[in-house]
């Protein structure tokens, strides 16, 4: 590559870089700085809050071994594993159904996608009614479970509601993947006498994998940042469903920006590690594009 064109390329992407620095790098650095300060602690003799901020180093990170953070961390992890696993299976099933329908295809697709289109806060409210003491859920199972009280049942309620809402998202992306698989591959499999199961495992799944990996990655990112559903549905301050985002929100609400920023930084690190591992294990294809270009060069 000639030197001149390289400079030109840099110039062309500089607005993007500038925006990224402003909206990604700056908040990150500001949060990192904030996580090492406390402010508004203590009152003076007249009862006024002592102003100014104080450098405390990593003291704000001490909360990481606290019961509340560990609980929130565990909840976030459990919600992510459970919802993404269930949603992947259901989402793929939905995609296969949507793909296979011959008549009324639009109607089936639309109806499967409705939950995804409902704003989370609204679906949280709907599910709160479903899981009320005298709600639909208890009427169906004929039990009197208090879903919104602290306990495992509250976690289960959140997982059910989240699955209802976001399985269609995976379904949609997988459907897009399914539609680009050429029919002739299936015809060849049929000629070779492959069973339906073999066709699914050996043809559909490998060919749809790139789309599926992206869908699952998006879902993991979303699930790790889960906030509104437990908040609206079960209620703030219920530790059984308190996620990391909810804990961060609560700390910030109590004007403890230092610890809030510290937990935020930890959440970012956690998300990054999970994504790194995920991409390493499954997502080589995500980078295939970049690699092939490199090879060509």
């Amino acid at each position: 590559m000639r030197r001149g064109s390289r400079w030109f390329a840099a110039l062309m992407i500089s607005p993007t870089l500038l925006v990224l620095v402003l909206v990604v790098l700056y908040p990150l650095l500001a949060a990192a700085r904030e996580s090492m300060y406390v402010r508004g602690e203590g009152l003076d003799a007249d009862g006024f809050v002592v102003e100014g901020e104080r450098f405390v180093g990593v003291a704000n990170y001490a909360g990481l071994v606290g019961e509340r953070f560990v609980n929130a961390f565990a909840n976030t992890t459990v919600f992510t594993l459970a919802t993404v696993a269930v949603e992947t299976v259901l989402g793929v099933a939905m995609a296969l159904v949507m793909h296979g329908v011959l008549r009324g295809r639009g109607l089936v697709r639309a109806s499967i996608l409705i939950p995804w289109a409902v704003p989370t806060a609204i679906s949280g409210l709907m599910w709160r009614w479903v899981f009320q003491a005298d709600g639909v859920a208890n009427a169906i199972i004929g039990q009197k479970i208090l879903w919104t009280t602290e306990g495992v049942q509250a976690k289960l309620a959140v997982i059910i509601a989240d699955t209802w809402k976001t399985a269609p998202f995976i379904g949609l992306l997988v459907l897009a993947g399914l539609q680009i698989i050429p029919d002739m591959v299936y015809e060849a499999a049929k000629v070779d006498g492959a069973s339906a199961w073999q066709t699914f495992w050996r043809i559909t799944l490998p060919l749809v994998k790139p789309a599926l990996v992206v869908a699952v990655l998006f879902r993991i990112l979303q699930a790790l940042a889960m906030f509104d559903l437990p908040f609206v549905m079960i209620g703030r301050g219920k530790f059984s469903v308190e996620t990391l985002s909810a804990l961060i929100w609560d700390e910030a609400t109590q004007l403890r920006y230092g610890p809030a920023a510290a937990y935020g930084i930890v959440l970012i690190a956690y998300v990054s590690v999970i994504v790194f591992v995920f991409v390493r294990l499954l997502g080589a294809d995500l980078l295939a594009d970049a690699r092939s270009r490199k090879e060509r060069a």
């Binding site: 961060i248 929100w249 809030a260 920023a261």
Partner: peptide, 8 residues
């Protein structure tokens, strides 16, 4: 999240 945390 970071932005929320930083707005203090």
């Amino acid at each position: 999240l970071a932005a929320t945390a930083a707005c203090g």
